[in-house]
Design a protein around this nucleic acid. Structure first.
Length: 464
RNA sequence: GCCUAAAUAGCUCAGUCGGUUAGAGCACUUGACUGUUAAUCAAGGGGUCCUAGGUUCGAGUCCUAGUUUGGGCGCCA
């Protein structure tokens, strides 16, 4: 008899074909219910969200031992597939041989019961074995592929932006310093300042906070490009939507304006939602049932609806006329507070683009509108994850850009190469940044960014 | 960084007004059980009540400080 080495995923996709066949499976025990003359093991082999039920009987020579196999143990199971249409599970495996490949000690922390997210965060090395995190991290993988698929199908070129940069000018927050200097004995120059000439790169260096500026350089060669990589912020942010290390997707498109940019963002969001819904139905059902009621409805609606677009001024008008007592007063020259974002997505009942922001609260590279007051920036706000996308048309006019950099104290000498892009074939172009982890939160309904990142880094937390 | 709440068994939690030996469910160990679905039933083992001070005859319980964690806000994406 040939024993087919197979996976649970394979079995679920075509179990009728396996009916009566002998197979070999490897996996881990999720639950073991032993009775006097037989017992049941729910086995998960990691290839599929669902478990397979293994039936064992006292005719097996190691029956007594099998009865005592604990949750978490690794097994090799040989047996025959039985189709069981009248049972809660569509099929099961009747074991002929079960071998313990790796015991799980008595103090295994993961039990067949509900755990708090906080406890599982402290056991980040074990939590992918739970239903929730199994679903989250498989969807994370599928989401990665969805994003690459979307851009590759549209002939975008993937650019890897550097993770170490010498530019401190991107203005996107506090950076982690990168140095090989001995911090206990820093070399000083004559004026008492730290002598970075002695450092590895002979200048100050830090981890990137954004790959956008480098992506622009490639967009002006390849027309349509995207980055997909990690980025680092050293802010002391303690919220459910911030991490010190997170991933961003930053498309950059040449010969395109802010409206092309929004269209791209909307198409992308719709594509990846649709993609994940089709590729991970079991996981998405689980989120709907146990994480966020109404999730599938919400996502299906996003796929089929047109995203609302309002100007910043219109958004503030909505807020000012709202019958709500805001802690922060909305203002025409002010950024939107979290409570404002929440109100807007609720008011418009779905994702909202806010465009044409006051220039003084936005970055130096955003293109000045003809009113001289606002810039061609857009934020996409979504329920639950806040600002999912932030983007803009870039200032391609050299004189405008230089003026803006002077006004905002951005050092032009460090960004000489960025200015070069405006001197040599500069053209209108635009792009945006998508917070990958926030997108995953939106897709799964999981409300804390620490629960969609395998080993999250946040202030005071760098375990694992 | 600010505000706020919490910290008791491996996990999730009770613990009255400050008063004898700190409890339950799950997990674990032992046993029962002829189809279980987070099985069920019985018994057993398991505690630095976050840390350091303080009040008191007596503190898991009250007070002070700290640590960590959750939530909200800010910074930011």
């Amino acid at each position: 008899m040939i024993l087919l080495k197979t996976t649970v995923k394979d079995l679920y996709s075509r179990f009728e074909e396996f009916s009566g066949k002998e197979i070999t499976l490897f996996g881990w025990i999720r639950n073991n219910r032993a009775q006097k003359e037989f017992g049941f093991i729910n086995l998960n082999d990691g290839t599929f969200f669902e478990t397979i039920q293994v039936v064992y009987e006292d005719a097996m020579e190691n029956f007594k031992e099998i009865q005592k196999f604990r949750v978490g143990s690794a097994l090799q199971v040989k047996g025959t597939i039985l189709v069981t249409p009248s049972m809660p599970q569509p099929f099961e495996i009747k074991a002929t041989d079960i071998e313990l490949m790796g015991d799980s000690l008595e103090d295994y922390p993961i039990q067949p019961k509900r755990h708090t997210r906080e406890f599982l965060r402290e056991n980040a090395h074990l939590r992918p074995r739970t239903n929730l995190f199994s679903a989250v991290f498989r969807v994370r993988s599928i989401l990665t592929y969805a994003i690459h698929t979307f851009f590759q199908e549209r002939n975008f070129v993937n650019v890897v932006a550097p993770l170490i940069t010498a530019s401190d000018a991107e203005g996107a927050g506090e950076t982690f310093k990168v140095t090989t200097l001995d911090l206990d004995r820093l070399p000083k120059s004559d004026d008492g300042e730290i002598d970075y000439k002695k450092d590895f790169f002979q200048k100050k260096a830090n981890l990137t906070v954004s790959g956008q500026l480098q992506a622009e350089a490639f967009a002006l060669a390849f027309k349509d490009v995207y980055t997909f990589g990690p980025t680092f912020r050293a802010e002391n942010s303690n919220t459910t939507t911030h991490a010190s290390e997170f991933w961003m997707i930053e498309p950059e498109i040449a010969f395109a304006d802010i409206f092309d940019d929004m269209q791209l963002a909307e198409d992308m969001v719709k594509f990846i939602i649709d993609y994940v819904l089709k590729r991970a139905p079991e996981e998405m059902q689980f989120f709907e049932k146990f994480v966020q009621k109404g999730l599938l409805n919400k996502l299906n609606k996003v796929v089929t609806s047109k995203f609302v677009r309002v100007t910043h001024k219109e958004a503030v008008d909505v807020l000012l006329s709202a019958d709500v007592e805001f802690e922060n007063m909305p203002g025409y020259q002010e950024d939107l507070a979290t409570e404002h974002e929440k109100y807007l997505v609720k008011h418009f009942d779905g994702p909202v683009f806010v465009i044409d922001w006051p220039k003084d609260i936005k970055a130096f590279y955003m293109r000045l509108n003809d009113d001289n007051e606002t810039v061609a920036a857009m934020d996409l706000l979504v329920p639950g994850s806040g600002e999912l996308i932030g983007g803009s048309q870039r200032e391609e006019r050299l004189d405008y850009l230089e003026k803006r950099m002077s006004e905002m104290n951005i050092p032009k000498d460090e960004l000489w190469w960025y200015l070069d892009l405006r001197k040599y074939g500069g053209c209108k172009h635009a792009g945006f940044g998508l917070g990958f982890d926030r997108m995953l939160m939106y897709l799964t309904g999981v409300e804390n960014i620490r629960d969609v990142i395998p080993f999250p880094r946040t202030p005071r937390n760098c375990e694992f």
